[in-house]
């Protein structure tokens, strides 16, 4: 038997519906406000590039922190990715396609996809979290306010050098990762597969296009920009002590990882 609607039940459903709509409305409005704040920070960061004297002294230390310090973890991941790529390619191709296609698969995948994307995601964790936690702590301990009272522009002093360093250094780290990934795939092919160096190199050169390297660089530049910008935005938006710093750090890593994967698809659709 169908239950009949009572006034009490109708009111409860109505409250639930309106509550849900209100929550969606709050979410949309919060999201739009976030986009607005991010846009304002972007404009301020663009303008702050004119204050060369404020960001230039910070650029080199930031390049070392963002780029040079990230090299070991990026190369570690690239090394094992190259080995696994080589072994899995051999497993997939055996008996159907000539084995030198292992070189094709390793090089193409490393240059076009795994090199830049894995480096981007790894650095989203390492660099994005670091920037967000550092700026977040500075925000909640009033160090950002202190900078302003000392006549510094926090965007020029804190944001501009970090974003520039990320944009410059991510492609460098990604290209190193690609090189090491291919090299480790090569070594794995020689040591663990029944392949000669000549065969691997033949595959390596077969479908190689210089444009692939530019594609890798363009992707890495965009990932570097995204990871550092999102890290700065989340850090400077931090409210409410240690818990707030933790929240903004998580948000920075999750948001930049999602944007990296989205951009990855966009670049593939637009540039290939």
């Amino acid at each position: 038997m169908r239950p009949t609607a009572t006034p009490h039940r109708t009111a409860t459903v109505g409250r639930g519906l309106f509550g849900g709509l209100a929550a969606v409305g709050r979410g949309v409005s919060g999201g739009l406000a976030g986009v607005g704040r991010a846009s304002r920070l972007g404009v301020a960061a663009g303008r702050s590039l004119g204050k060369v004297g404020m960001w230039a002294p910070q650029l080199s230390p930031q390049m070392a922190r963002v780029g040079v310090a990230s090299v070991p973890i990026a190369l570690f991941i690239a090394t094992f990715t190259g080995i696994v790529m080589s072994l899995q390619a051999s497993y997939t191709l055996t008996g159907t396609i000539p084995l030198y296609f292992v070189g094709v698969l390793v090089s193409k995948t490393m240059i076009l996809e795994l090199g830049p994307v894995l480096t981007g995601l790894t650095l989203a964790g390492r660099v994005g979290a670091n920037i967000s936690a550092e700026l977040g702590t500075m925000r909640v301990t009033e160090q950002v306010d202190a900078l302003e009272t000392l006549a510094y522009d926090p965007v020029a002093y804190l944001v501009a050098p970090r974003v520039l360093a990320g944009t410059i250094m991510f492609p460098v780290v990604a290209l190193l990762a690609v090189t090491v990934g291919i090299a480790s795939g090569w070594v794995a092919a020689l040591q663990l597969l029944d392949m000669s160096s000549a065969e691997f190199v033949k595959g390596l050169r077969l479908f190689f296009e210089p444009w692939d390297v530019w594609f890798c660089v363009i992707k890495s530049v965009s990932f570097g920009f995204v990871v550092t910008s999102v890290g700065c935005f989340c850090g400077l938006s931090t409210r409410g002590g240690a818990e707030g710093v933790g929240r903004s750090t998580t948000r920075a890593v999750v948001a930049s990882s999602m944007i990296i994967l989205f951009l990855d698809a966009v670049w593939a659709a637009v540039l290939l």
Binding site: M138, T141, E142, Q143, D145, A146, E148, T149, L150, A151
Partner: peptide, 19 residues
């Protein structure tokens, strides 16, 4: 505003020293 701020010294509640 920067010029004005140079004429004002601000001592923060928890010092806000740069770590």
């Amino acid at each position: 505003l920067a010029d004005l701020r140079r004429r004002i010294g601000y001592v923060f509640q928890f010092a806000a020293l740069f770590d």
